[in-house]
Design a protein around this nucleic acid. Structure first.
Length: 151
DNA sequence: GCCAACGTTGGC
DNA sequence: GCCAACGTTGGC
């Protein structure tokens, strides 16, 4: 089982949306590195730190679990979608997503500045300068530190 | 709203 | 294959 951090803008899709929908499809990833993780490495049962970017403050707000993995993102084939990709073929999908469910919303949301201040999280990708990757691997140790802070 | 840090595109 | 131009992300 692996651990991840997923970034989302709460204005677009928040942890409250996930809570309401029960099971949500993580759509619209259009970055190849993140795509590769979603297509090849994110698996059912993996745990996810749910991160609100472009929030004030940016923070980790809870944990989720993958319930289905490696699903071609249907929006790439929909000309009316903002995620439409004219070069994507049904026989050869370019973009992938996963389905996930909420495990727990944190009692304490953990801001980016708190993550940066934690010695045990110095290697975490999200605290690195200029890290824009929206799907990030997280180590077991990092995951456990964050969960301990959040619950 | 600014802007640094990337990622992508396309001319050559 | 190089690289300038452009677009996007996302913290501040």
């Amino acid at each position: 089982m692996r651990y991840w951090l997923f970034k989302t803008e709460p204005d677009v899709f928040s942890i409250e949306d996930l809570q309401r929908e029960k099971i949500s499809f993580w759509e619209g990833v259009r970055n190849y590195q993140a795509r590769n993780y979603l297509r090849d490495d994110v698996k059912e049962g993996d745990k996810v730190l749910f991160y609100h970017s472009n929030a004030n403050p940016p923070c980790i707000v809870g944990i989720a679990e993958i319930v289905e993995s490696g699903i071609p993102d249907p929006h790439q084939f929909d000309p009316n979608s903002k995620y439409f990709d004219p070069k994507a073929k049904v026989s050869e999908p370019r973009w992938y997503g996963v389905k996930l469910k909420l495990l727990q919303k944190f009692k304490q949301q953990i801001s980016l500045s708190e993550l940066k201040a934690n010695v045990g999280l110095a290697e975490m990708i999200v605290v690195q300068k200029g890290s824009r990757l929206s799907i990030q691997p997280v180590t077991k140790k990092e995951f456990e530190i964050v969960v301990k802070l959040g619950l």
